[in-house]
């Protein structure tokens, strides 16, 4: 079980991701945009952050760069939730400090599996 922070502006997707990961056994925290994720991360200290790319107030890239510049949270792994076919965005995301990306749209069981794989790779499961 891991502590996971989700940053996603679309409420339906945010709720679905929360529901899916929660009942896969994780503790889940939610942010509605990049700025909120940056605000929440130091207090929550998640094991993993799942970050959408296109969000209001602060995009996923901007939020990721901001997090990587904060001493207390810079080591928290960030994974982007990227739309299919946006290869350039994936590259930009990885350059911003993310360790991986999950393609959207995803089936809930696929998300659970990918998160489990990522956590396992980080030695967190």
């Amino acid at each position: 079980m891991a502590r996971i922070l989700i940053a996603e502006d679309e409420r339906d997707i945010r709720d679905l991701v929360e529901f899916t990961l929660k009942f896969a056994g994780h503790e889940v925290f939610k942010a509605a945009n990049g700025a909120e994720a940056v605000e929440l991360a130091p207090g929550v200290r998640p094991d993993l952050i799942l970050m959408d790319v296109r969000m209001p107030r602060m995009t996923g890239y901007e939020a990721c760069r901001a997090l990587k510049g904060m001493d207390d949270v810079k080591d928290i792994p960030v994974v982007f939730l990227s739309a299919k076919g946006q290869d350039v965005e994936m590259k930009t995301g990885l350059e911003a400090g993310a360790i991986d990306y999950i393609l959207k749209p995803f089936a809930p069981d696929e998300l659970t599996r990918r998160v489990a794989e990522i956590l396992q790779g980080l030695g967190l499961s």
């Binding site: 339906d12 709720d15 679905l16 529901f19 899916t20 009942f23 809930p108």
Partner: peptide, 13 residues
Amino acid sequence: WRYWIPTMQQLSM
């Protein structure tokens, strides 16, 4: 209720 999780996920949109 737990065995409805996949159905809820599927219908939630």
